[in-house]
Each structure stands twice: as structure tokens, then as C-alpha cells.
Simulated scan of single mutants.
Amino acid sequence: MKYAVWGLLVLSSLMLLVIVLRNRGGGRLLSALGLNVVVAAFLLYTLNLLSAYTHMDLPINTATIGTVTVLGVPGLLLLVGLKLTLL
């Protein structure tokens, strides 16, 4: 069962990649998404690097990178606000 789920995941990922790359704007979409992910990881890394001064550290995981990728700097501020408020 475990191998079937992994096989289905790999197959669906490859099919999605083929569909995206066959369109004319697909490469541009993937490069923009990749750039946003890199910028989000850089922002989170910079925040963690400055945590000695700010006493604010956020984990670099899928949820935080996804939030900052989609929302940008306001997403980073949202995560900092949630950390200050809830924790």
C-alpha cells in the first residue's frame, strides 16, 4: 500500500510537470514560483540570523516558507505577530 501511494504521488507530479511545461507560460510560472520560495527562505533565514538581537526565531519548514511565499513580507510579519501573540 505504501509503495502504491508513493507511485501515485510520483506519477501525478510528473504529469503535472509535463502539463505545466507544455504551456508557453509554464516555464515562467515555475521560475517565478522558485524565486518566491528562495526569497521566502532567505527572509526566514535572515530573521533567524538576527534572532540574537530580536529574540524572535521562526522555524524554516514547509508551513512557514509557504506562508511567506504566498504573502511575502506581510506573511513574515503575520508569522512574527502570531509568534508574539500565541507563544
Rank of each mutant, 00 (worst) to 15 (best):
K2H: 13
K2W: 12
Y3P: 09
Y3R: 10
A4Y: 13
W6Y: 13
G7K: 02
G7L: 11
L8G: 15
L8K: 13
L9V: 15
V10S: 05
V10K: 04
L11N: 11
L11G: 11
S12R: 13
S12E: 14
S13V: 15
S13Y: 14
L14V: 14
L14T: 08
L14S: 06
L16W: 15
L16N: 11
L16Y: 14
L16C: 09
L17Y: 12
L17R: 04
L17P: 09
V18P: 03
I19C: 08
V20Q: 06
V20W: 12
R22T: 08
N23K: 14
N23P: 02
G25W: 07
G25E: 13
G25T: 03
G25D: 07
G27N: 00
G27M: 09
R28M: 14
A32N: 07
L33M: 05
L35K: 05
L35T: 09
N36Y: 00
V37L: 07
V37S: 03
V38K: 06
V39Y: 00
V39H: 00
A41Q: 03
L43C: 00
L44M: 08
L44W: 00
Y45I: 05
Y45R: 01
T46K: 06
T46E: 00
L47G: 00
L47A: 01
L47P: 00
L47T: 02
N48S: 10
N48H: 08
N48A: 11
L49F: 08
L49E: 09
L49D: 02
L50N: 10
S51R: 06
A52F: 15
A52T: 08
Y53R: 08
Y53K: 10
M56C: 06
M56A: 04
M56S: 08
D57N: 15
D57G: 14
L58S: 05
L58Q: 04
P59F: 10
I60M: 05
N61Q: 14
N61H: 14
A63C: 10
A63K: 07
I65V: 14
I65W: 09
G66N: 06
G66T: 08
G66A: 09
T67Y: 04
V68N: 00
V68C: 06
V68H: 02
V68F: 03
T69K: 01
T69G: 01
T69I: 04
L71W: 08
L71S: 05
L71E: 12
G72Y: 02
V73A: 08
P74I: 03
P74A: 02
P74W: 07
P74G: 00
L79V: 05
L79P: 01
L79T: 04
V80R: 01
V80D: 02
V80A: 02
L82I: 10
K83Q: 15
L84R: 08
T85A: 11
T85V: 12
L86N: 05
L86R: 10
L87Y: 15
